[in-house]
Write a protein that binds this DNA or RNA. Structure first.
Lengths: 216, 216
DNA sequence: GTCTATAAAGAGATAGAC
DNA sequence: GTCTATCTCTTTATAGAC
């Protein structure tokens, strides 16, 4: 195999991934057919099964493409925050900011990219990919531990639910931020995600330190 | 038409609704076929189209069956809270508690019922039914107004986003509460929804009164 | 590695008998 | 109001030519 073959193979593969993430962001995992995808990518219908094995595996590739780097960056940022003696606010920011870093790696608009991310973390019908579970467990374990250190007197179950609540705040903003904008006829403004990260961190930080908590 | 006919027609219709909500709660709107439904209900395949017109309209009926009463009860509770001079905490509780009232009207287990509710408010692929939009707008308008009175100095856009965050907390708990339980191997406990409502109210109340807010 | 052609299964919907 | 039988369309996947 020569370099040109690899380049061409990767081109087709990447075209499929790009088309899939665009269509999935717009319509959801369950509403997109292989023909939609191959038409969008300008490749033959058989190409998906040749390059990915099945539609399901293509979907796993789409999910892992960004979610795994997001979880890696979450781990890196958390380490940095803890090394610098950061508190709960910084921990929560480390949890939410990586989506903002990752958007620059995609060809999609910010709005569509966040929609895709929301679908990846919320549409558990379309197979929560096995390939992302270990990293996800590691990441959530590290954050749980960090928050448990910050709130030594908070019962673990309460802490886990508050982390889950924070996850819900973020996921709903990613997935349905556009719905709020349409539903309020723009009265909520059209904040960029940087603004939303700050607002979400403020909101969840206050929720974490609420009665029962023991903030550092 | 005699009473018996009506009873029998309603029986079939209700059997279809019951089977559909059970299957949708378990598998999601996009993963259930008409044959799954009619098998589950013990009725003929043609019955769905006879009684509901189409699969889509059946889904709208399933969504409206509980979501409309939930939104009505939210409005009633809010009126009562405001009449009694309740504050932000009580307003948030009025927003979240109706799911707990409604679960008793269903044949499903609590866990499955909340899963169904989560799907109804989060799966916007499967058609956000036109029939529930007016009530939904009225309800969210009333809550926005009540919260705006409680936080007269908070910019409206921030207030709307904090309400959206609260919605995310609740929706994620309804839809993915079971995921947290499995994912943490039970370390989060298995709290009943009453406990979760209190925790969500605590969390969101603190989020609302965080810096920038002006609590009553 | 890419194409055409097609297989095989399953979907939603409905005509017409009862 | 309910049933059987069937229509029509779409889906994923693949065999085999190039």
């Amino acid at each position: 195999m020569v370099a040109g073959d690899t380049a061409k193979r990767n081109l087709t593969k990447v075209r499929i991934l790009d088309a899939t993430e665009q269509l999935v962001a717009e319509q959801g995992f369950d509403s997109v057919s292989l023909r939609d995808i191959t038409n969008g990518a300008g490749v033959n219908v058989a190409a998906v099964n040749y390059h990915f094995g099945s539609k399901e595996k293509l979907y796993e590739a789409v999910q892992c493409r960004y979610i795994n780097p997001v979880n890696e960056e979450r781990l890196e940022l958390l380490e940095k925050v803890l090394a610098e003696g950061g508190g709960v606010r910084e921990i929560l920011e480390a949890f939410m900011r990586p989506f903002l870093t990752m958007v620059t790696r995609s060809k999609m608009s910010e709005q569509l990219f966040f929609k895709l991310m929301g679908r990846c973390i919320m549409d558990h019908n379309a197979s929560l990919s096995e390939e992302m579970i270990p990293l996800f467990r590691q990441m959530s374990g590290a954050y749980t531990k960090a928050l448990a250190s910050a709130f030594p007197e908070m019962p673990v179950d309460l802490l886990l639910w508050r982390l889950h609540f924070s996850f819900g705040v973020m996921a709903n903003t990613l997935l349905h931020g556009d719905v709020l904008i349409k539903f309020t006829d723009g009265a909520c403004g059209e904040p960029d995600f940087e603004t939303n990260v700050q607002r979400m961190v403020d909101f969840c930080y206050a929720g974490f330190v609420a009665e029962g908590g023991d903030p550092r």
